[in-house]
């Protein structure tokens, strides 16, 4: 299982690009962290997640 934004998913073996797509996110509007390290956009296609990984997909919202 892979933890994506706090929830467990059957996603081992998928690339970050797939996770972003599957999650319904716009790649140009998100930043991705894999086990606390930022994954640059250029590496979305060849970064593969495995069991036990933790992924955060974040974006901008309103704030002060």
């Amino acid at each position: 299982m892979v933890k994506i934004n706090g929830k467990e998913h059957e996603a081992a073996g998928k690339t970050i690009a797939q996770l972003v797509l599957d999650g319904g996110y716009k790649p140009e509007r998100v930043a991705v962290e894999l086990n606390l390290d930022i994954v640059p956009k250029a590496k979305y296609n060849d970064t593969v997640v495995k069991d036990g990984d933790s992924v955060e997909i974040v974006g901008f919202v309103g704030g002060g």
């Binding site: 934004n5 706090g6 319904g24 716009k26 509007r29 974040v58 901008f60 309103g62 704030g63 002060g64």
Partner: peptide, 29 residues
């Protein structure tokens, strides 16, 4: 204009970046 970083919303949701006029500098907090 300040912004915050949170877990991303899916593309059906409106994105704040689409509402900020061009030429305004972003200041993430």
């Amino acid at each position: 204009i300040t912004l915050a970083v949170r877990r991303a919303q899916t593309k059906e949701h409106e994105n704040i970046l689409d509402y900020i006029p061009e030429g305004v500098t972003l200041l993430p907090n």
